[in-house]
Design a protein around this nucleic acid. Sequence first.
DNA 1: TATACCTGAGGTATATACGCGTGAAGAAGG
DNA 2: CCTTCTTCACGCGTATATACCTCAGGTATA
Lengths: 97, 97
Amino acid sequence: MIATASDASVLFGSRVRARRIELGISQEDAADLAEMHVSNYGKVERGLANPSLHTILRIATALNIDPGQLVTGLDADMVPDRVHTVTAADLIKARQK
Amino acid sequence: MIATASDASVLFGSRVRARRIELGISQEDAADLAEMHVSNYGKVERGLANPSLHTILRIATALNIDPGQLVTGLDADMVPDRVHTVTAADLIKARQK
DNA sequence: TATACCTGAGGTATATACGCGTGAAGAAGG
DNA sequence: CCTTCTTCACGCGTATATACCTCAGGTATA
């Protein structure tokens, strides 16, 4: 892996780790509960992964937390290779003229 | 694609579509705003995709909605190939005995 | 010392997300 | 009839997420 770290992944991973520590279980336990490989789970916590929706849901369910809490506040600005900063609101506003 | 549909993907996609319709823009507009390909965006709305965290954030930001709202309430039970139904709470409870 | 547990780091192999094109079907309007 | 817009469905490369392994280093305890 050529360091797929992103601000979004790092923040997401830190939330996952905080929740796991709060529960007092190991990465291996969490990975088993989430039915994923420990090595991949570790990468998620370190912010080196870009987990899929299914992976996010498995982790959230395993840690007894709503997946919304893990991703709320996250933003596309934290995602690499973002070029535009235009959103739907801007598009609609421009068309109304 | 061998029909990667899942309850989680379908529900997620319907929320994305509802939000896009609410904004009154086309799939192509939304895809451009999210900086992703229309064909892939369409699959997401139809529940045929399993989008990554980055993709989820790009879509949410493009549609001016918090990503948490798109995934809240979703659950690993809606994810295919789920074998266990044990969560951290169960594990901790079992260890306390 | 040794032993066990936890985490990080790196490799390889496979599955799949994603980009990108094409074509078709429907609706709306000229 | 025609065009235009929108969406869906399919296929094909490429990038990458994930599974799986090994090894290293820390920490604790006996």
